[in-house]
Design a protein around this nucleic acid. Structure first.
Lengths: 117, 117
DNA sequence: CTTGACTCTGACAGCGTTGTCACAGTTTAA
DNA sequence: TTAAACTGTGACAACGCTGTCAGAGTCAAG
């Protein structure tokens, strides 16, 4: 699958697909022409990156647990470290969610304030 | 209160306090020396900006409902518009929370994957 | 073969936020 | 008075992401 098709399938711009690669998150095969050739595993990877990214995660961070993102199954070497990173990221996500909720509360507070004269 | 004290009280850097002002979110009085002079109302404003910002809101966005942030009570002119903006922002916050939860779910999924060989 | 659509690389710019630096003026305490 | 700590302004840089543009090569259909 060429980059244009992957872009349409995932909704991720061609620009960003190339950027993912530059950041080391994708390594598509290359055709003789030099064109990138993605397989379906890579499509799934892109979907995961998209979701993690929309949660406010940096590509550099995502790269930390790339084996998971790639779905390469159980990891040997960095498994412990990986677990630590994952726990930390979950903690950060919770923290972020709390901030968001707090922010939302303020907005609702404002709303009540101006809706009750 | 001078900028250094406000910074210590709120935990917002001096740099950012000046930035808030440059973006039109604060208008502290000036002493004869040119030094900024903040009152307690402005301190509360900073706290609110901090919370809204930590929820991922842009200063330009926050400026839209500045009367609320400043706590200037009921607003006349832009009240309807303000309500619309607030509703929209709450909707966006919910949307962001949903993405965050989705992202978190993926992280937990990874965690389970590598914890069960 | 020709044409239009696609892809390649590399560079530049912008967003909003944040730190830092330099240089000048002000306040405060010794 | 002098020195240290603070404040002022303005500029520069960097972060991570994203679009766009230019110039060259490739593919697919007429």
């Amino acid at each position: 699958m060429k980059i244009g098709e992957l872009s349409k399938r995932t909704g991720v711009s061609i620009r960003m697909l190339r950027y993912y690669e530059a950041e080391g998150l994708l390594k598509p095969r290359r055709a003789a022409s030099g064109y990138r050739d993605y397989d379906t595993a890579e499509e799934r990877t892109v979907e995961r990156i998209k979701l993690l990214g929309s949660g406010g995660m940096t590509l550099a961070t995502i790269r930390q647990f790339l084996p998971c993102v790639r779905g390469e199954g159980p990891v040997f070497e960095p498994c412990d470290e990986l677990r630590t990173v994952l726990h930390e990221q979950i903690r950060l996500a919770d923290q972020k969610a709390e901030k968001l909720a707090q922010s939302r509360r303020i907005l609702r507070h404002f709303l009540l304030e101006i809706e009750q004269p």
